[in-house]
């Protein structure tokens, strides 16, 4: 549970994600999705309840869980006045990534930004900056991706890149939790969907064999 000024933003959410599983979190505005995600990213502490990530108790040892996490929000979370290379060098050092001289070009070429490696991120378009965020996200090889509306600002090419990343991630035995408003993407890219309303989890379903249109109808019913 997590409250802000007496209002419970997340209340009674019980969640377990097995390795290799991807979970989409959907719900109307103010449902508590982003708060839930910030708790999972160790940016907020729950007022009640516990969080365990990759075997680490985050109440007391959040620091130990953080190397396993990759967090991306609506924004790329990189310094606009540093170059792409300098940003990755910084986050590589913070996460203790070895062999940065080779890892950085790899990460940049995966997102199509290698030719712009030495340009400040401020000179990038919104979509390119978000792709830069994806490069930062994957540089340290996290076990769990925590994504808050990561498709914001991405063009078709960038969106395809993120789709591929999520698919590759799950097949590598790693997990992802993603908040999105796009119901089709929530069904197509995840193994499970969690529906939230007013801070509570009102439904959790498997997406195997699920039709996106049928889910949209169910979602309307649950969140009406």
């Amino acid at each position: 549970m997590r409250a802000f000024g007496g209002r419970r933003a997340v209340d009674g959410v019980d969640l377990e994600l097995a390795p290799g599983r991807r979970l989409s979190v959907v719900g109307p505005n103010g449902a508590g999705k982003s708060t839930l995600l910030r708790i999972l990213a160790t940016l907020l502490r729950p007022d009640a309840g516990t969080l365990e990530l990759a075997g680490h108790d985050c109440d007391h040892h959040a620091q130990r869980a953080r190397p396993s996490l990759g967090y991306l929000g609506h924004d790329p979370l990189v310094y606009l006045d540093l170059t792409a290379w300098q940003n990755l060098e910084l986050f590589g050092d913070l996460f203790g990534v070895d062999d940065l001289r080779n890892r950085i070009p790899d990460a940049l070429s995966r997102v199509g930004l290698l030719p712009r490696a030495h340009d400040p991120v401020r000179t990038f378009s919104r979509g390119m900056a978000q792709r830069m965020g994806i490069a930062r996200l994957t540089l340290h090889d996290p076990v769990l991706l925590v994504l808050d509306e990561p498709y914001t600002g991405l063009d078709a090419q960038g969106a395809r890149l993120l789709d591929g990343l999520l698919e590759g991630f799950a097949s590598g035995g790693r997990g992802a939790v993603m908040v999105t408003h796009e119901l089709g993407r929530a069904v197509d890219l995840a193994d499970e969907v969690l529906v939230m309303r007013a801070g509570r989890a009102v439904d959790r379903c498997d997406t195997a064999g699920m039709d996106a249109a049928a889910f949209a109808a169910r979602y309307q019913e649950l969140t009406a």
């Binding site: 160790t42 940016l43 967090y71 990189v78 986050f91 913070l94 203790g96």
Partner: peptide
């Protein structure tokens, strides 16, 4: 947020 989710 990126700094605070890093193991620093």
């Amino acid at each position: 947020d990126a700094l605070l989710t890093a193991p620093v």
